[in-house]
Design a protein around this nucleic acid. Structure first.
Length: 503
RNA sequence: UCCCCGAUAGCUCAACUGGUAGAGCGAGCGGCUGUUAACCGCUAGGUUGUAGGUUCGAGUCCUACUCGGGGAGCCA
């Protein structure tokens, strides 16, 4: 077969009426006697290919009819616009070449469990949803680089094997470095700070490792983080940078991945609202909100909604169960059974929320100034807003040693978290850094860290110290928020979770 | 670290208070010229996570363990 007319599915719009060759994998196949409907994927999209008996040799028709899912093949035919077809185009096949016939591909077009799919992650990446998420991930990462590169930032690659504790000593991954204990980087921040004193505006972007014993939908032990750092910046300007940055990422995804977002069922209308300015709250405001009547009412209303939702689901389940016992076709029964499984899963989730609601309400009401905001507190604040929220000026004792004490109030630091809206929670943490040598040294001591390890970091405060600051954005959390994907593990090709690495 | 739930065919799940282990998908064979997770007929496919216990009898009850899911805590 000649490869001269080979095109990608994404380019079919330019080939209507022409004879072309597609090379790809069989994603799905249906047959209706003398017509085969083969859906092909080639990495750029899906295309339904029509094979009619009589238009190709009989022997080839029989081979194609028996072809298993994920067989690789090349199909030649004429391109036609077709509304009914996935992607909007169809290929009327005139010739075909089977490259590798496949039998027993484990991931079928039916539903599968989480564990099974993670064990088959190397194959699951081919599935349509995962493919869409991967394309959005690509856009997010490209947008991150583009934003900083176009705004005068210099990329600095920070080390992965390191001696310093950037965040928390409990969550370090130890590495045996020729007999000496070292660990994997929890952040590149301290290194980008020194680079900021050379270039002014810098960022690092790479994998980050945290051995947190957190088994939640928002945690990975290996994740990607981008950390800009700017010399001569104050907190208001840093917030402005962060909101422009996040808005740019969302805009790029909306521009480049609209069909992926649609496939995933993402909330596009909400994403379109993500423009500066974002909401700004101080930690103290947040505490007032959490302990105030508004939150009480909000949670009570939410509980009400959940109860209604629960009742609706339950009556629907009862309805289906009655229907199931009647005289109906077996396939119809199975459809009902499948719907029931889905409804029951939804019901379980609603029940968990109902169970958690009073607990979260109690936690919020009893919240006292000085504690770090818990996961549920963040969720509540984020649910009460339709745009991202900056929470600034946290109590000093809940935060890392390098954050600058607020000159106007020495109980708080000049930091911020950015909470994504609609209950998603934190995607950015950042701060102005302590630039006074003696204050920083004291903070290092207070945290029980060894000052000698930080000699080079303290040097930055000895030789031309300037006000500076930066933040870190979690890539997978951002992708999960933008796509509406429930679990962060779907947002990285090969996830590493607490106690669990599949492949 | 704690709490809750689960483990049955390759996959997703049934099997009421203990009584012969089933269905769909997938696989194989056959039918159907416009299917959208197509449909219809037939066939194959199981030591019910592991180890013990109770019982005439255990997928079902009890104990321990292993693995998984969800949540809490903790944490960007």
């Amino acid at each position: 077969m000649s490869n001269n007319n080979k095109v990608y599915i994404s380019e079919l719009t330019n080939s209507v009426g022409k004879e072309v060759t597609l090379a790809g994998w069989l994603y799905q196949a249906r047959s209706s006697g003398k017509v085969l409907f083969l859906i092909i994927r080639d990495g750029t999209g899906l295309c339904q290919c029509i094979v009619e008996k009589g238009k190709i040799p009989d022997e080839l028709f029989e081979q194609l009819k028996r072809l298993g899912q994920e067989s690789s093949l090349m199909l030649t035919g004429t391109v036609r616009a077709e509304q009914r077809s996935v992607g909007g185009y169809e290929l009327s096949v005139t010739n075909a070449e089977i490259i590798c016939p496949t039998e027993g591909y484990p991931i079928t077009p039916k539903s599968h469990g989480v564990d099974f799919l993670l064990k088959n992650r190397h194959l699951h990446l081919r599935s349509h949803r995962q493919w869409c998420i991967g394309r959005i991930r690509h856009t997010v990462i490209d947008a991150i680089r583009r934003f900083f590169n176009d705004n005068g930032f210099i990329l600095i690659d920070t080390p992965i094997i390191t001696t310093i504790v950037g965040e928390d000593q409990q969550s370090l991954f130890e590495v045996d470095y020729f007999g000496s204990p070292m660990h994997l980087a929890q952040t590149g921040q301290l290194y980008v700070e020194s680079a900021a004193m050379s270039y002014g505006k810098v960022y690092c972007f790479g994998p980050t490792f945290r051995a947190e014993k957190s088994k939640t939908r928002r945690h990975l032990t290996e994740f990607w983080m981008v950390e800009p750092e700017v010399a001569f910046i104050d907190l208001p300007a840093l917030l402005e940078l962060a909101e422009n940055f996040v808005s740019f990422i969302v805009a790029q995804v909306l521009q480049n991945n609209r069909s992926d977002l649609e496939t995933l069922g993402s909330d596009i209308a909400s994403l379109e609202k993500i423009t500066p300015p974002f909401y700004r709250l101080t930690y103290t405001d947040a505490v007032d909100i959490l302990t105030g009547q508004k939150t009480k009412d909000f949670l009570a209303e939410q509980l009400n909604d959940l109860q209604t939702q629960k009742q609706q689901t339950e009556s629907r389940i009862a309805e289906l169960e009655t229907e199931q016992t009647g005289q109906i076709k077996q396939w119809k029964k199975d459809k009902i059974a499948a719907e029931l499984i889905e409804l029951c899963a939804g019901l379980a989730e609603t029940n968990t929320k109902i169970e958690n609601n009073p607990r979260h309400a109690a936690l919020a009401a009893e919240f006292r100034w000085g504690k770090d905001l818990g996961g549920s507190d963040e969720t509540i604040i984020s649910q009460m807003h339709d745009k991202p929220i900056f929470v600034t000026h946290y109590p000093k004792r809940a935060k890392a040693f390098y954050m600058k004490t607020d000159p106007k109030n020495d109980k708080v630091v000049e930091n911020f978290d950015l909470l994504a809206p609609a209950g998603f929670g934190e995607i950015i943490g950042g701060s102005i850094r302590e630039d006074d040598h003696d204050l920083l040294l004291r903070r290092i001591g207070e945290q029980g860290l060894n000052p000698e390890t930080y000699n080079w970091y303290l040097d930055l405060r000895k030789y031309g110290s300037v006000p500076h600051g930066g933040f870190g954005l979690g890539v997978e959390r951002t992708i999960a928020w933008v796509t509406g994907e429930k679990h962060i593990r779907q947002c990285i090709p090969f996830p590493r979770m607490m106690d669990k690495v599949y492949i």
